[in-house]
Design a protein around this nucleic acid. Sequence first.
DNA 1: AGCAGGTAATTTACCTGTGAATCATCTGCC
DNA 2: GGCAGATGATTCACAGGTAAATTACCTGCT
Lengths: 166, 166
Amino acid sequence: MEDVVAGVLRQWERAYPGLDTGPIAVLGRINRCAALLQQTPDPLTRAGLTRAEFDILGALRRVDAELTPTQLARESFASGAAVTKRLRLLEERGLVSRRTDERDRRVAHLSLTDAGRELVDGLVQELVAYDRVLLSGLTPDEQDRLAEALAGLLNTLEGTIGRSLR
Amino acid sequence: MEDVVAGVLRQWERAYPGLDTGPIAVLGRINRCAALLQQTPDPLTRAGLTRAEFDILGALRRVDAELTPTQLARESFASGAAVTKRLRLLEERGLVSRRTDERDRRVAHLSLTDAGRELVDGLVQELVAYDRVLLSGLTPDEQDRLAEALAGLLNTLEGTIGRSLR
DNA sequence: AGCAGGTAATTTACCTGTGAATCATCTGCC
DNA sequence: GGCAGATGATTCACAGGTAAATTACCTGCT
């Protein structure tokens, strides 16, 4: 059985005979998977959260401590400006609370409210269950190998990109 | 050697002992890889194109025929509105030209100009070479297995999502 | 003929992210 | 003590995406 990308690859190969479509086969599929995952309604959508907002809440839950906006940006792989915007919405919804540092009044310390923590606790369970369904087409063994290959790729990418930014 | 996601997974596991982090290990890495790929400057950036714009040009080159905006939307996995906007920019740059259908004056037929075609021809070579570098951390065999696993996942996702939209 | 309904493309209003500038505050040095 | 420069966070102007409404046109039915 063939996926959508396979047809695209054949077209490229026909347009440019001899072209090495191997790299596109990998990266094109990663992009396509990510795009599909982002567009699909999931438990977060039903809870009225975006993936980006959940990344903030998740970071606070994971580390189980207060975090500053800068730390949150690093933890959730986002820009500072994006974090500021998301925090405003999350605070308005009463999921996150803010405390100003006493020593250095520039810095803020964010933490989950009780409501925020309960929301995350419930959502994590739902999300994992949902993700398991999405992966159900692969055997557990295939899933493990896929995760491992992606970890390797991720390391290369972080390296390449880190270098290109300097 | 460990990737960035591995640390995150350990934190989740510590916050929720016994949580099955397997699904996150796969999907989290896919999202992270895609985000990195999107943020990184690549040959397209240097040519002043976004990935989305190149997807339009690429579709026209691949099928080597005129396409309507609706067909372009399907081919490049985008919304109609997005295609309209991109086409306007690409036409302004002289990369794409438009022809109105004679029978049905609602429909437009888009094709690459000579300049557009030459641009794509050059960029495809550069892109494949660049992608090969990004994947250089994996052996060719690992790359093949990764592509295959992703194809399987993609099929499941298209299925799951197709169902959820009905 | 002419209208009801469908379809292609575009427009509109809005939302979210980004990089650059700005504001507020702290720290080190003279 | 007080200023120069650094740093944390926010704001700003803008780019690009989306869903829903709109425009323009075609087709089939009476």
